[in-house]
């Protein structure tokens, strides 16, 4: 069995939570639908979860419950509604949300942009993390931004990853659903694969 996954039974045993809690948290959207991975086994259908992410999430929910927060408060914290924010490019640099290099790459594509809505900020944040790998040229960051801006909508409400592949000096970036496996030809190299939802949460926590 894939070592990155944990079965439902083991999850309950390891965390001490009950079936009822797990189902309630799913209903309240504290645990995303995509994390419930159904696989056929010889005993029938079994449900698995991405191990690291579900363990971190459950720990966080239990911590917040200790602080007497309601499930709705917790839902807000783990899946923040960030639609309404606006951040200036200066503030982005000051707060260290993205490097000046990423910001200038962003400005090259959007010269008139002053305040960013969350979607733009997210694109910038992802771009910055890609640039930080040292594998992406500033010229190529244009493609990354275009991919993100055009692709977001198609993945609305689903878990997806930003993937960057390089072959013979040419970078290609794409968006894939998080559960997708990717097979590359031998000459190609996976530069980065980042889960967008994780970045949303990381970014949300810093705003």
């Amino acid at each position: 069995m894939d070592t990155g996954l944990i079965s439902k039974k083991d999850l309950l045993k390891d965390t001490g939570i009950s079936y009822g809690q797990l189902y309630r948290w799913k209903r309240k959207k504290l645990i995303p639908e995509e994390w419930f991975i159904r696989k056929s086994t010889f005993t029938g259908q079994q449900t698995y979860f991405p191990r690291d992410r579900i363990l971190v999430r459950i720990e966080r929910i239990l911590d917040m419950k200790d602080e007497d927060l309601s499930l709705d408060d917790i839902a807000e914290a783990v899946a923040p509604d960030l639609g309404g924010i606006g951040v200036t490019l200066e503030a982005v640099v000051e707060e260290g949300l993205a490097s000046p290099a990423a910001v200038s790459a962003f400005q090259a594509v959007h010269p008139d942009s002053e305040a960013l809505v969350f979607g733009e900020l997210l694109s910038l944040y992802l771009l910055d993390r890609l640039l930080a790998t040292g594998e992406l040229s500033l010229e190529e960051s244009r493609t990354v931004l275009a991919t993100l801006e055009e692709g977001h909508a198609a993945f609305e409400g689903r878990e997806y990853d930003l993937v960057c592949i390089r072959r013979m000096g040419v970078a290609v970036c794409l968006l894939v659903s998080s559960s997708a496996e990717i097979g590359l030809e031998s000459g190609a190299r996976l530069v980065a694969r980042m889960n967008v939802q994780e970045c949303v949460e990381a970014l949300g926590a810093r705003l």
């Binding site: 039974k9 009950s18 079936y19 009822g20 189902y23 005993t43 029938g44």
Partner: peptide
């Protein structure tokens, strides 16, 4: 699957609970 599961006239492959 549930914390408390109490059944009559039910056909199921598996029942799990406390």
């Amino acid at each position: 699957e549930g914390d408390e599961v109490s059944l009559e006239y039910t056909t199921a492959k598996v029942v799990r609970g406390d």
